[in-house]
Nucleic acid binder design. Structure first.
Lengths: 192, 192
DNA sequence: AGTTATACGGAGGATGCCTCCGTTTTGCAA
DNA sequence: TTGCAAAACGGAGGCATCCTCCGTATAACT
């Protein structure tokens, strides 16, 4: 057994890997342009691949979202880890939320992609969801223990607020207003 | 000119009025059961009317939502008026938001119905939207003037937060968690 | 080169959106 | 009452999307 105890299976086909990438690129393009509701057929067309191929690689729209924005979620998780040590967890939280917001504003469709991550009773527990929750949790917990922040709020709650507020608001001043709302929310989190 | 300066036009047909009601009832049923994305054809079927009839009465999905939930929005507007006089505008706001939340939790689909109300650059300025915004504004303004609350937050912002947080969260503990988030937000609104 | 697992592609059935127009119903006036 | 025209009905039909299924093509292995 050459690899790490894997089932001795055939190497994945080259065209499969290549097409997966093509699909991800196309999806990024299409979602970015046409919003998250863009048709999957459009994605397949943009990738110059059959619709069947798309569905084989990503059985659901969510699976595609997840794959498309995995990188971004990673970044956020890392940022949370870096910020978690700081002295003022309220400020850390604000910083993190702002970063997330900026990212969401850039990558249109990301909010929608994360949305199912908010939905606890979704058919499949998404990895993305867990990552985001843990990141937020890491930011909130210390402050709660120190009595700096309310302790009845979970990482999941934070993520829910973030995603909900980001999702679908189409106003021109969107980013600014939403940032303000998030700050206000964090202020409300502070004890005293 | 018998009436109030109206164009002397023919009395609306009886079947039209009757069918309008049938459609509203059916829509209430269907949206309540199947969520706000339920197909309009399903509504028409439930009303035992043709799809064409539905579209004639309510040219868009939004128009239907609007008509379905007009009553509820009225109630909320009235409640806001009643609460607006109180001494503690933070508390008043919390009370109002909780009432709104309860209503939304009951009438599934109402959040979705109100969603376009949040979207300032929607094709048509909905009446519902304006009503909700004014209601919230009436609750926030006095507090802001008295220096009790932040003054950089509009009624529109409040409604946005309410609707966004209510929309689409499908967790079982939904209502409780969201209520808590809204309270926290209002706390954050208070001047420290 | 031959074999076989794997992937591709797109036709096709199901459903939903919305429009259009022939048919039916209703209000009104003679 | 009767007749007429305005108004409403209903659903077929064109288009788009979703998602599945399976015959064909192709890459990995021997």
């Amino acid at each position: 057994m050459g690899e790490a105890g894997e089932k001795a299976s055939r190497k994945p086909r080259a065209d499969s890997l290549r097409n997966r990438e093509r699909l991800l690129d196309a999806a990024r393009q299409v979602f970015s342009a046409g919003g998250p509701e863009a048709s999957l057929e459009a994605v397949a067309r943009a990738a110059e691949l059959g619709i069947g191929t798309l569905y084989r690689h990503f059985p659901t729209r969510e699976a595609l979202f997840q794959a498309v924005y995995a990188r971004e979620v990673d970044e956020l998780a890392n940022l949370a880890r870096d910020l978690a040590g700081g002295p003022d967890s309220g400020e850390a939280l604000k910083t993190w939320l702002r970063a997330a917001l900026r990212m969401i504003a850039t990558k249109k469709g990301m909010a929608a992609a994360l949305r199912p991550a908010v939905d606890t009773c979704a058919p499949f527990y998404t990895d993305t969801a867990a990552r985001m929750r843990q990141a937020a949790e890491a930011l909130v917990r210390p402050g709660a223990l120190r009595g700096e922040l309310r302790d009845d709020v979970t990482g999941e709650d934070i993520v829910t607020v973030l995603i909900s507020l980001s999702y679908g608001t189409a106003r021109p001043d969107w980013q600014g207003a939403t940032g303000r709302m998030l700050d206000i929310f964090v202020d409300g989190l502070r004890r005293g």
